[in-house]
Design a protein around this nucleic acid. Sequence first.
DNA 1: CATGAATGAGGGTTCATTCAT
DNA 2: GATGAATGAACCCTCATTCAT
Lengths: 211, 211, 211, 211
Amino acid sequence: MTGKDEVAGGARAQPRRQLRGQQRIELILHAAAAVFARDGYDSATTNAIAAEAGISPGSLYQFFKNKGDIAHALADHYAAQLTALRGEVFTIDSVFDASLPDLVDAVLGPLVAFNLAHPGFKAIFARTDMPVGLREAVAPIQVSIHQSVAQLLGLVLSDRQPDEVARVATVAIQLVRGMVPLITDATGTERDALTAELRSVLLGYLRQQLT
Amino acid sequence: MTGKDEVAGGARAQPRRQLRGQQRIELILHAAAAVFARDGYDSATTNAIAAEAGISPGSLYQFFKNKGDIAHALADHYAAQLTALRGEVFTIDSVFDASLPDLVDAVLGPLVAFNLAHPGFKAIFARTDMPVGLREAVAPIQVSIHQSVAQLLGLVLSDRQPDEVARVATVAIQLVRGMVPLITDATGTERDALTAELRSVLLGYLRQQLT
Amino acid sequence: MTGKDEVAGGARAQPRRQLRGQQRIELILHAAAAVFARDGYDSATTNAIAAEAGISPGSLYQFFKNKGDIAHALADHYAAQLTALRGEVFTIDSVFDASLPDLVDAVLGPLVAFNLAHPGFKAIFARTDMPVGLREAVAPIQVSIHQSVAQLLGLVLSDRQPDEVARVATVAIQLVRGMVPLITDATGTERDALTAELRSVLLGYLRQQLT
Amino acid sequence: MTGKDEVAGGARAQPRRQLRGQQRIELILHAAAAVFARDGYDSATTNAIAAEAGISPGSLYQFFKNKGDIAHALADHYAAQLTALRGEVFTIDSVFDASLPDLVDAVLGPLVAFNLAHPGFKAIFARTDMPVGLREAVAPIQVSIHQSVAQLLGLVLSDRQPDEVARVATVAIQLVRGMVPLITDATGTERDALTAELRSVLLGYLRQQLT
DNA sequence: CATGAATGAGGGTTCATTCAT
DNA sequence: GATGAATGAACCCTCATTCAT
């Protein structure tokens, strides 16, 4: 037992340190997200992230072993928040007998909102060609997201083979990944219109899966 | 008698030279496409492209003034081929009264084939966050593609406003951009299945635009 | 107790850091001067400067943004020292009613000594054709030197038009610029003899301006 | 006997070739002079010289083994013309009993005219810090020029030791070298004024040598 | 001999990462 | 732990020089 994620354990040992460290990590991740969003992952420099975080480059490497590791941690960070999102969707009363439009709306609304609130997210997730360091970092999270979506889709595609459901999940995710940058880059009514289109796309696609 | 440029013995400048130059350019573009596809645009180095082409770094710069210029030329190269593709689609007899499925098939088949044949294409086109040098290189082609698609969609969405057609075109392109990497990365039946899904996505989406 | 910055214990930011930085800058400038003197400005490489300074190439760029910037800083460095020299000359009691020979001696002695002590000086200043980066770097200092000399000459050529004084200053500077490399390249009695010749040149020239 | 500079030998063997070769060499030297004058020796590229000459880079190396060799040949070229100049000065009737001003004028006028007519001259001669390749190229000519000047000065400084005359020659040359760029860069009356100043400098200097 | 494409060593510069303080 | 100066490999690009045609 390494004592890493004890659930009920109060503050023991060096609470101050761990706390500061955790704060520091979040500070860095926040900065990294901002820089990734601003410059793109490849063009983002670790020095720029440190500067954005108001810390020294050396401190960055106290918590992360390299640039890819920052992306990895950031991916984990987002994964946790998405898991929370998933929890909310799944706790919707009607999820098990919801209509398809309701289901899509239930997922899409929070998802778009999430992307707008976290511009760093798409900077590391919504890419079609990932550099080596980044792919490894986000791969586990991709899987996790895929599982969530597949699970959700399993509810409405209950008569399909698991591999078929998996594929539909893959496709649905990819559609969203493709559209989200368009949506977040747009503003005002155009953004709303594009969001509506994405909804339409997903509905159109999934409806055909039901027949 | 090489039987190559013996047509009429006119006073054409340096056919041999220009020919070699053109061949060289295509050699480089081919190499660049391979390296972009393998490493991604950002990670691709000009030295790696030169090595892939079996030439020296300096030779690259006889034809291209920098890395972005190579991307630009490659984009033009693809644009020309896509224009040819478009020509074929538009010359289909039934294009003006084709059914939606036929139209989608007419476009999608060649498009997927094109992407499979040219793995470098998606490396420079199917990105959501482009570095500055790349964006400038591909922007004109993006516009050209969008126009072609919008023109095609205008045929089936003849009662819609131009800006709506434009948006549908944008969305359709983005859907394809998102799905293509998935398709080209897959193999065998999975690839076929994903291609079918993309077809389904587009059909589902466009059908809803018709109502 | 290092006995260096223990003056009053004020809240000065990072004296150690800044000190090291300042030392480093001077180390680099010293190395640059040596390399410029040895290889000439154009042939001098930033890597050679770094090697001469015993540091890594990257460290240069922590302090200077490019090669021209090093030349610029070196020019400023020399300018400051020349300003000090000028101060000494001007504080000579008899400057306002000095004889021409005394005045020339008062300037020339320190100037030659300065050039001997700083071989990098002539490498960036005593050139007739400057590359672009270098010209920009030294231009301000050229102007400053010219002003100083013109001011001094104005004392002995009080009845001449300003533009004439300016021209005499230009010529005098150019004569020194031309002769200094000769002097510094020579050794022993030959150097002394050449210095005496320069003195003779200036005296002969300026005397004619007085008549 | 290598048959290189046969004085009276008419055109034998391959007159056409040698002629063309000689023309080519002069073409290149002319171009090199222009490029050296425009860009400076260091920044001048052999490709730029070839382009200026309207020939291929490869042809350049048929006649010159490297960049320094071009400078060397150009220096020889100028040396020959200066020798002709010297011949004219020496054939002046009164050279042996001319007054100092007349002598200076006799030399300076043609010299300034020569520099104005051949802007490439100062680009390779009027430098205080020469890159390795250039120094070797111009050194022999420097010596030759020095000898001519010393010879001329020997006429007016007949009672001085040879080494003293040599030094005066060195200084006089250096004064001219320093001033010429100033003069050629200036235009109109300012150029005339600076030329007059140079005359004054030389006269002032040499007069003091006579006493 | 002329050509000009090809070469490749090397230059200036950047930046992920380390380490003395 | 924190710092930020230092590192140095590697990048893009240039250009003197060569060589197949």
